[in-house]
Design a protein around this nucleic acid. Sequence first.
DNA 1: TGAGCCAACTAGGTTAACTATGTTGGCTAG
DNA 2: CTAGCCAACATAGTTAACCTAGTTGGCTCA
Lengths: 114, 114
Amino acid sequence: MVKHTGRPGYLQIADDLRAQIRGGALAPGSPLPSTAQLAEQYDVSLSSVKTAVGVLRTEGLVVGQQGKGVYVRDAAEAPADLAGEVAELRSAVQELSVRLARLEERVTSTGHPA
Amino acid sequence: MVKHTGRPGYLQIADDLRAQIRGGALAPGSPLPSTAQLAEQYDVSLSSVKTAVGVLRTEGLVVGQQGKGVYVRDAAEAPADLAGEVAELRSAVQELSVRLARLEERVTSTGHPA
DNA sequence: TGAGCCAACTAGGTTAACTATGTTGGCTAG
DNA sequence: CTAGCCAACATAGTTAACCTAGTTGGCTCA
């Protein structure tokens, strides 16, 4: 499936999947084929598919869920506008802080088992 | 060198290098240590270093020149990769969430009063 | 029936081995 | 002195093998 142009196979696969996502063939929230299926489809090793998916993951186009699959990120959760993303992260950090404080409170007041 | 938190080693290395770049310890145009050196420095395999460098390459922070080395991209030619930074924060928050949830689970279940 | 175990499948991380290819510096032969 | 070769080192790509860990569905046994 991958052509022997100069472009590495794993980038060709990443390109292809990216195009399918941008083009809507892979809708937000939908899963990519499993890595095993992709490996067969493109006729490359599992390792190369993992590398390709890793690129998309780094780009934030896709999120992996261990045990389930790799899902196309929702446009809503991947806002083009960075300010919104930052606001989202800020609230997430806020929430984590609260939970951590609660946990610290509990552990220091009651002692905790070794 | 890499700590055994939940965060994968190759991401810790990528984080560290990214911080050095952002902090100016690795100036634009200057080369990173060779992959062999990094492998020794962080006490991981060559493969993990390659993965880490691959992340930075995907983020556009760094460019590799075959036969020579990996160079920090000029800030000018690396147009505002706030998106990359945000992506990084997102994954960090995600990872913290998981760790916190695990901790909460452990503390509440290991038998001591709420 | 229902609870629990277990097998099969999923992604993810790490390492190793091998190949290709580019760069550089030193050495040698003419 | 110079041209060419060659060894050493660099990134890059590909594959394979293990291991961890989460999910799911079916099967068994009480």
